[in-house]
Simulated scan of single mutants.
Amino acid sequence: MLPPDDNDFEDEAPAQLSLAARILRLQHEHRNLDLRIAELYEFAYLDQLQLQRLKKKKLLIKDAIELLKDDLIPDLDA
């Protein structure tokens, strides 16, 4: 086993990539939900409950994306 590296920059880089990858994955899922919601609007009278659930999930994903973006940007006050 290798000893831990004292370089802090190398420790932060994988975390940032992980955050960026999570943001991209959530953005992709958000777009897919948007498409599904648009499809359901064509036949909205068929499944209102499904439409409401998808909208709620889309909003939760949007909030998660914003939180991850906030984590990705370093605090300037620190």
Rank of each mutant, 00 (worst) to 15 (best):
R53D: 06
K57D: 04
R25F: 09
L68F: 15
L49R: 09
L49C: 01
M1W: 00
L72A: 15
D71V: 03
D8V: 13
P3V: 05
P3A: 12
E29G: 00
Q16C: 11
D8I: 09
H28Q: 06
M1Q: 03
L19F: 12
Q16Y: 07
L51C: 01
A64Q: 15
L67W: 05
I65K: 09
K56R: 08
Q48E: 12
L19R: 14
N7R: 08
N32S: 10
M1A: 15
L17F: 10
E39D: 12
Q50M: 04
Y41M: 05
P14Y: 07
A38C: 01
I73A: 13
R25Q: 07
E10H: 00
D77M: 01
E42W: 00
P3G: 02
N7E: 06
R25A: 13
P74C: 07
A64N: 08
R36G: 01
P3H: 00
A15R: 15
E39W: 05
I23C: 13
A44H: 03
Y45W: 03
L76C: 10
D5Y: 02
Y41T: 01
D8R: 07
Q50I: 01
A20F: 09
A21R: 11
A13D: 09
I73N: 14
P14T: 02
N32P: 00
K57A: 06
I61L: 13
A21F: 09
Q48G: 04
I65W: 10
L72F: 15
L26G: 02
D77N: 07
L60H: 04
P74G: 07
